[in-house]
């Protein structure tokens, strides 16, 4: 039986409410209890586990290392005349700042879900 880890005042990032009063109970690789979370938040927390369900990276659909994938990504973006950096919704502000930095370096367009 893995040890039960309790995180108080955890923050849910499913919707724009960003409720920060959730109590999470984690056992090993999954969250088993989400106190005060709504039904959407509960399924969000319980559907994301820490299991290794997917390959680290895929290049042309084939499993690859993160290092090789990072190199391939950098090559494609560097060679492009008008690359697009899009999404930014389900990532942290720290990742968003990195995305702006990268978009500037590659001379691209940066856009989020807001434009949809």
């Amino acid at each position: 039986m893995p040890e039960l880890k309790i995180v108080k005042n955890a923050t849910c990032t499913f919707c724009g409410c960003v409720c920060d009063d959730i109590e999470l109970h984690a056992e090993g690789e999954r969250i088993v209890e989400t106190k005060r979370a709504c039904s959407l938040g509960e399924s969000w927390f319980k559907n994301h586990t820490a299991e290794r369900l997917y390959p680290d990276a895929l290049i042309d659909g084939q499993p690859a290392t993160v290092a090789a994938a990072v190199e391939a990504a950098a090559d494609y973006l560097y060679r492009a005349h008008m690359p697009l950096v899009y999404g930014l919704s389900n990532v942290t502000c720290e990742a968003q700042r990195e995305a702006v930095f990268l978009a500037e370096l590659i001379g691209g367009v940066i856009d989020s879900h807001t434009s949809l």
Binding site: C15, G16, L88, S89, N90, C93, R97, H113
Partner: peptide, 15 residues
């Protein structure tokens, strides 16, 4: 505005 996806507000702010 009622924002949907988790940190879409953060994307606006950071950009």
């Amino acid at each position: 505005p009622m924002r949907g996806h988790g940190n879409v507000t953060g994307a606006d702010v950071v950009l």
